[in-house]
Amino acid sequence: MADPSTATAPACPGPDPDPRPPAMRLPAGSVDCHSHVFGPVDRYPYVANRGYTPPDASLADYRRMLATMGFDRAVIVQPSVLGTDNRATMDAVAAMGGAFRAVVVVDPSISDAELRALDAGGARGVRFNLNNPGGLPLEAVEAVARRIAPLGWHLQFFADLNLRPELVEVMRRQPVPVVIDHMGHLRPERGLDDPGARAMLALLGEGTAWVKVSGAYRCSSADIPYRDTTEIARALIAAAPDRVVFGTDWPHPDYRRPMPNDGDLVDLFNEWVPDAEQRRRILVDNPARLYRF
């Protein structure tokens, strides 16, 4: 079904359809901690207030990528284009019989019964996407945090901390753990002395915040394989080795430079983390704690 709002929300490309295996085998039980599913749009319609219109990215296609990379488990993150309608995300999790978890988007007015149902279905956190239309407003953070605290969930933030370092203080005062996705969108050319980078590293060092070393291609100023992100990624890992996870960000929505192959991204992660025990911690042990696998 054609989407009548496409004219105001430009179409974005889909992922590389031919994922290649990484050079190094991932450890058993590895978790892809950041991904999305889209479509079919007639079943899971997009909100009118959105920044992009993705093509369908099916669970079957995603499972093929996971198998090629060597991931056994995954976390589906509710994208901004679906607003608070979590059906596509939760249906994908339900189809995988315990191998998937979810990060959802909910309004503060959601009922306790609805929250409990999401928790039983595998939801473990709520995302605040502050970079794209369609996400929850920052003003809702405290109210949402109070609602999810009894469930042991976390708040996940997608924000550019180079541009908005003051957000770190918002994260610091929450009553639940926070997870910063896509490396805080820190730009390599701004370095680790940038106020946003310093604030983020300080927060990680305090012992409650987590970070996803995902979305390197979104931060990088270089071409594939985005090696200019190595210093940032290693600094984040060193700051919170027990509170860092990795994600592919498949199917890489709203990205308009040359599309990475997911094998490129996994190979880059393996370069960032040459120690096998540390790789296992990030790919297996840390996700098991955060998402309660």
Rank of each mutant, 00 (worst) to 15 (best):
D3I: 02
A7E: 14
P10C: 07
D16Y: 07
A23L: 15
M24W: 12
L26R: 01
P27F: 10
P27R: 11
G29W: 10
V31A: 12
C33Y: 06
H34R: 08
S35N: 15
H36N: 07
F38T: 04
P40G: 04
Y44I: 08
P45N: 03
Y52W: 11
A57P: 00
S58N: 07
S58I: 05
S58W: 06
S58K: 06
L59K: 01
D61C: 06
Y62G: 06
R63T: 13
R63Q: 15
R63M: 14
L66S: 03
M69Y: 00
A74E: 07
A74F: 11
V75Q: 01
Q78Y: 08
S80D: 13
S80T: 14
V81W: 13
T84Q: 14
T84V: 15
N86Y: 00
A88G: 12
M90N: 05
M90W: 07
D91C: 07
V93H: 08
M96C: 13
G97Y: 10
V103W: 01
V105G: 07
V105E: 12
D107P: 02
P108Y: 10
S109I: 09
I110E: 02
I110G: 03
A113L: 14
E114H: 12
R124Q: 08
R124H: 03
R127V: 01
N129W: 10
N129G: 08
N132C: 13
G134P: 06
G135N: 06
A143C: 09
A145G: 03
I148P: 00
P150Q: 03
L151R: 03
W153D: 00
L155A: 02
Q156K: 00
L161T: 00
N162R: 09
L163N: 14
R164V: 00
E169M: 02
M171I: 01
R173Y: 00
Q174D: 01
V176G: 01
V178R: 00
V179Q: 03
V179M: 08
G184Q: 02
R187Y: 05
G191I: 09
A197R: 10
A197H: 10
T208R: 15
T208C: 13
W210Q: 00
W210G: 07
K212D: 08
K212A: 04
V213L: 14
G215A: 09
A216E: 12
A216S: 15
R218M: 14
S220C: 12
D223N: 15
A233L: 09
R234I: 12
A235I: 11
D242Y: 10
R243W: 11
V244H: 04
W250Q: 01
H252Q: 12
P253D: 04
D254H: 14
Y255S: 11
Y255D: 01
R257G: 14
P260D: 06
N261Y: 11
D262W: 09
G263K: 01
V266K: 08
V266Y: 02
L268V: 09
W272K: 06
V273E: 05
P274W: 11
P274G: 09
A276M: 03
Q278A: 15
R280I: 04
N286P: 08
R289K: 15
Y291H: 07
Y291K: 03
